[in-house]
Simulated assay, not measured.
Amino acid sequence: MHAAMRILALAIMVVVLTACWDQRSIQETSYVTSLGIDYDEKEELYSIYGTLITMSDVAKTEGASGKAFPSYIGHGKGESPQLALKALYRSTQLRPSLDHLMTIVVKENALTRIPDILDSFNRSRTVRYNISMAATTEPLDELLASDTFFNSPMYTFLYTRRVRGPAVPAVQMMNLQAFIRQFYEKSHTTLLPVLKLDRSSWKQGGKSKKYIYFDGAHAIVGQKQHEELGEPLVQGVKWFHSDQKGAFLEVRDDEGKFVAIFAVTTGKGRLTYNRHSGKDGAFKAVVSVKAYIYELHDKAVEVQLEAWAENGIREKLQQSLATGRARRIDLIGLEDELYRHHLAAWKKLKKTGIEVTSLPIDVVVDVKVTNSGKHKL
């Protein structure tokens, strides 16, 4: 009798443990892969745009049909980001999920609402800290519905964490964890890359295509103040914000005539502070670049080409620093260098009200050609 009861209890447990009463097929779930966030100051409402995919759609693109990947772009409004999402979800025919959210794009109008946006999504257990962050000035519905190459949903800068080659941006997209760390750091100026749409460079079957590219950045200072930085401005300071491997570097002579193109193999900026230089100290910005000759239009020795390249980088960096000084924007992390490694000097400047960007900066550039591309230059 006892043996029979034990067998019956064991059978019941086996049935319960192996039951699939709450099973849900992945084809029955719609996954939000990217979100666009805007804010209307007059209406005091958030706008949320979301890109949806289903696993069945992804499976179809892996076959031989060659059909284009369908884009589902939803839109909802609300007094908070979550209320806007709720409005978006109400007509979603399949159960929505943020488990595969990869990118959040913030419209420039919503940059002043970053604290509320972060609070909203940080409380969601499904939103991971490795999703990418970017800004845009484009209509969000057009940006999220931009074309992709070869009908693949992943062949777009919207989902590319690190861009390599000639298209490498001056400011790469950062993940949510890095953004939060910089945003709430009192000494840091956060640079968000700006995504725009190229509507004229590509066609398919005679029809124009819209593809995403990087163009400039938004500087966020003091958590609420933000400034738009054009592409020429961030090009001068790109060595401090982005791995430039594979980027093209234009080389011009002293008269400004184009003579060559270098392909960068390594390029980085380094910042140091000397508290004994001048009354309040001074900075030294060093840019080190290694590259090979990709294209040569005028004959010149390598030493001359290197000198011209150094002059071009130095001139752009000095122009960017001068613009940053005039607009009181720390473009290369001057204050962060002081705060982390020279705290006493940082406190002194804060106490006296001296702007860190007003301190002198000595710019040093070193360019080395590692390969001429031919046996003879």
Rank of each mutant, 00 (worst) to 15 (best):
M1E: 04
M5K: 10
R6P: 00
I7V: 08
A11P: 15
M13D: 02
A19H: 03
C20D: 05
W21Q: 13
Q23Y: 10
T29K: 06
S30Q: 15
T33H: 02
L35F: 13
Y39P: 12
Y39C: 03
E41W: 06
Y46Q: 11
Y46F: 09
G50V: 12
M55K: 02
M55T: 08
S56K: 13
V58E: 10
Y72D: 15
G78P: 04
P81F: 08
Q82N: 14
Y89T: 12
Q93P: 05
P96C: 11
S97V: 02
S97F: 09
D99R: 12
L101N: 09
I104G: 01
I104L: 14
N109W: 06
L111Q: 05
P115W: 09
D116W: 05
D116H: 15
S124I: 07
R125I: 12
N130T: 11
I131L: 09
S132D: 05
S132H: 11
P139Q: 08
L140M: 12
D141E: 09
A145N: 06
A145S: 09
S146F: 03
D147A: 01
F149E: 00
F150R: 07
F150K: 08
P153L: 05
M154V: 11
F157T: 01
F157E: 06
Y159N: 06
T160W: 01
R162C: 04
G165S: 03
V168R: 06
V171K: 12
M173G: 06
L176I: 08
A178M: 08
A178R: 08
F179L: 05
I180W: 00
I180K: 01
I180S: 02
S187L: 10
T190K: 14
T190M: 14
L192I: 01
L192W: 02
L192E: 02
P193T: 06
G205L: 08
G206H: 10
K207L: 09
K209V: 05
I212K: 07
A219I: 13
A219G: 14
K224T: 07
E228I: 14
L233V: 10
V234G: 03
W239C: 00
Q244A: 13
A247G: 15
V251T: 04
D253K: 12
G256V: 09
K257G: 03
G267E: 02
Y273E: 08
Y273V: 05
H276R: 13
G278I: 00
K279A: 06
I293L: 10
L296W: 04
E302A: 02
V303P: 00
V303G: 01
A309G: 11
N311I: 00
G312I: 03
R314H: 09
Q318D: 12
Q319A: 08
I329S: 10
D330L: 01
L331T: 06
L334P: 00
D336H: 07
D336R: 12
Y339S: 07
A344E: 14
A344C: 13
A345S: 13
W346F: 09
K350M: 09
K351L: 15
I354G: 05
I354K: 11
V356R: 02
V356S: 01
V363C: 04
D366Q: 12
T370F: 01
N371R: 10
S372Y: 14
